[in-house]
């Protein structure tokens, strides 16, 4: 009885409102089903998205950071029509037989420009497209590679994380990029998931893929190139761009301590320069996350509110980072909601 009354009060109060909410959900769900169509389900050799695009695609600029390892450095920026979602570092590794792409950019257009950059260097088949985690700036370019029929590889939690967020991601990115830059962008979900550890062979060159525990997100994947000793960290490593917390601050700090022990000739951050030395590269990020976590813990202990914490914590770190004002308060909010349960 009580429950019935509650539902009546707290769900939309009029029957017509409730009915319209149901209809709204149905429509949204219908759109999602279309959006989530697997690349394997495509018919015909050319996807409609590819057919629509302009004939000339300017290749992204890339740097060869080790033999056969190329990185494009994304801008230190938020999604904007002017950058077309080109705000994350994107890489590819060339083996004897095949190419693996690691992250594809924030729109179909950037994915196509990355593909064009690959084709200026090699004609070998693109057999693998690896996504380091769920964020749109790393995987909304996947659609540009559908015609190559690669395996799309991600953390075993990537597919479900995307299922939960696809609607919001697509809507927000369409809004931020505008119709031109967003044109043709759709979500391509992983066709192969990494449970724990997985090895792919590019020919005389193996990539070791490791699914990490919850840190930056709950679906971070690291990739190690055995031939060059390069470690691709995705957004487990931010440099210059303030770190963004969308997983667990405790988990992230714990993972950093573990990754610091890994031997790597060089690392590629998700945001920052195309290449950096390990483990030196992670020290500023470690300091930032430690500062947030210790200040938030102190404020929780003092009985201060989440609002007070968001307004004050971390400000001493501001000068060290770009885009600090865009993300710091949100990081603090997330850390507070996590740490107050300790």
């Amino acid at each position: 009885m009580l429950q019935k009354r509650m539902t009546a009060t707290l769900l939309p109060s009029r029957p017509d409102l409730r009915a319209s909410l149901r209809r709204y959900l149905r429509v949204v769900f219908g759109m999602l089903c279309l959006t989530l169509a697997l690349p394997g389900g495509e018919s015909g050799p050319v996807s409609p998205a590819a057919a629509q695009t302009t004939p000339v695609v300017l290749p992204l600029s890339v740097t060869e950071i080790a033999p056969g390892v190329f990185v494009h450095q994304g801008a230190y920026a938020l999604f904007a029509p002017s950058n077309r979602g080109d705000i994350a570092n994107l890489s590819f590794v060339i083996g004897r037989d095949a190419v693996a792409v690691i992250d594809t950019g924030g729109s179909l257009a950037i994915g196509q420009a990355l593909r064009a950059a690959i084709r200026t260097v090699t004609d070998k088949p693109i057999r693998y497209v690896i996504n380091t985690h769920m964020h749109p700036d790393h995987l909304f370019g996947n659609a540009a590679f559908v015609d190559d029929r690669p395996e799309f590889i991600g953390h075993h939690k990537l597919a479900r994380a995307l299922a939960a967020r696809a609607e919001r991601y697509l809507a927000l990115n369409a809004q931020w990029l505008g119709p031109d830059a967003f044109a043709g962008t759709r979500l391509i979900v992983p066709t192969r998931s990494v449970e724990n550890r997985s090895v792919i062979d590019l020919g005389e060159r193996e990539l070791i893929l490791e699914a990490q525990p919850t840190a930056h997100t709950d679906n971070d994947l690291t990739i190690q190139d055995t031939a060059s000793g390069t470690l691709f960290l995705g957004d487990l490593l931010f440099m210059r761009h303030v770190p963004v917390l969308d997983g667990s601050i405790r988990g992230w700090l714990a993972l950093i301590s573990r990754l610091e022990q890994v031997a790597a000739a060089r690392v590629v951050p998700g945001h920052g320069p195309p290449v950096a030395a390990w483990p030196e590269a992670v020290q500023p990020q470690k300091q930032y996350l430690q500062r947030i976590s210790s200040d938030v813990r102190r404020m929780i202990k003092e009985g201060r509110s989440i609002t007070e914490a968001a307004a004050t914590v971390g400000l001493s770190e501001k000068e060290a980072w770009l885009l600090f004002d865009e993300f710091n308060a949100r990081n603090v909010t997330a850390a507070f909601a996590e740490l107050e349960w300790e």
Binding site: K157, R160, A161, A164, R168, D218, G247, S248, E338
Partner: peptide, 14 residues
Amino acid sequence: ASGGCSAPAQKDAE
């Protein structure tokens, strides 16, 4: 603010 009602309930699904 936008999208708050459809955002996943927890960052860590488990």
